[in-house]
Design a protein around this nucleic acid. Structure first.
Length: 327
DNA sequence: AAACGAAACAACCGCCCATGT
DNA sequence: AACATGGGCGGTTGTTTCGTT
């Protein structure tokens, strides 16, 4: 038995909204609010529209706090890092960008940012001028137009598990029995490249502050690694910040997710056992040892990486695709 | 100037989930 | 517990705009 439609499709107007309809909707909501019932709203407002259509129009376009215009570099970075962390949860990403809607971000990602980050559209070929309704901004991630920077990065290249796209409809983890959606896997893959490049950028052009904002601040996860300091061949990089429910964050995995890493036979940091059923991504700033990550300067970070022989392997294997993220 | 293709973005569709009955 | 309903979300499609030929 199929579900009853939310409205009578035959008797509602579809397609682009006219200025008159916009005015009616805005006027009604300004006067009466949504009333918590979008289905009943169009009739009350005198609109021949589906309630869902009204909701969409209001939330994505008419709301007074909507920010129109091009995305800033800072917004780009937030989108990238969150996409890499949580996939295509556009509403969650939108929540981090005041004034931006999930639809807006989704469209922006699909039409511009994704291609940009994947290197499909080098800035020199990005010939299309912006539409008049938007403000032009400088090309984002110009550093990404230098693919050689990835391989020449002082940090390790992304792990091989991410160097090629999944060949099947689902991405099988090598370490558990979970499958990942292509979009999520693609996001991780993309992000691994982006992260490498940005890390290199931070190293080479001394703009670490930007990297902090785009990656570090997004948040570590509550630590519940299966590795601990007592293990013979594991190093407890995941120091808890304080006790109890502190957010233990490894370095430099914190660049990505802040999971607890283990160490491999070559004494390099490898992805930790991060299970997002248990890890909650939170917007807190994590700690390395007892010190907030943001308190580390570039020199210190480089020193830590050097001293601890850290690498930036990306740890898609340990991320489950069906996890619930609690905020 | 017209045709065409690509890009941008608004809007729709259908599913899922929370909540109420 | 089962069902109905509305809201929310992500994926996809349709339309418009603009650059190129």
């Amino acid at each position: 038995m199929g579900r009853a439609p939310c409205c009578d499709k035959a008797n509602v107007k579809r397609g682009p909204w006219s200025p008159e309809e916009d005015a009616k909707l805005k006027e009604y909501i300004a006067k009466s609010g949504t009333g918590g019932n979008w289905i009943a709203l169009p009739q009350k407002a005198g609109l021949k529209r589906c309630g869902k259509s009204c909701r969409l129009r209001w939330l994505n376009y008419l709301r007074p706090d909507i920010k129109h215009g091009d995305f800033t570099d800072h917004e780009d970075r937030i989108i990238c890092s969150l996409y890499a962390s949580i996939g295509s949860r556009w509403s969650v990403i939108a929540a981090q960008l005041p004034g931006r809607t999930d639809n807006d971000i989704k469209n922006y990602w699909n039409t511009k940012l994704k291609k940009k980050l994947m290197g499909f559209v080098p800035s020199s070929q990005n010939h299309r001028a912006p539409k008049s309704r938007t403000n032009h901004h400088p090309p984002v991630f110009s550093v990404l137009d230098q693919p050689s920077s990835i391989t020449s990065s002082p940090y390790s290249a992304p792990s091989s598990s991410l160097s090629s796209p999944p060949t099947t409809s689902a991405y099988k983890s090598s370490s558990d029995n979970n499958y990942y959606t292509p979009s999520l896997a693609a996001g991780y893959e993309m992000f691994s490249n982006v992260a490498s490049t940005l890390l290199n950028s931070a190293h080479s052009v001394h703009n670490y502050q930007g990297i902090q904002e785009s990656f570090l601040r997004i948040g570590g996860e509550a630590s519940c690694s299966s590795s601990d300091n007592s293990s013979n061949n594991q190093i407890g990089y995941g120091k808890e910040a304080g006790t109890g429910n502190g957010y233990g964050v490894d370095f430099p995995s914190y660049f990505y997710h802040g999971v607890d890493n283990d160490i491999d036979q070559n004494q390099r940091i490898i992805p930790g056992n991060c299970n997002l059923d248990h890890h909650q991504i939170k917007p807190e700033v994590g700690c390395y040892g007892e010190k907030p990550v943001l308190d580390y300067g570039l020199e210190e970070i480089n020193q830590l990486i050097s001293t601890n022989n850290l690498c930036n392997n990306f740890f898609v294997d340990e991320i489950k695709s069906e996890e619930k993220l609690a905020y």
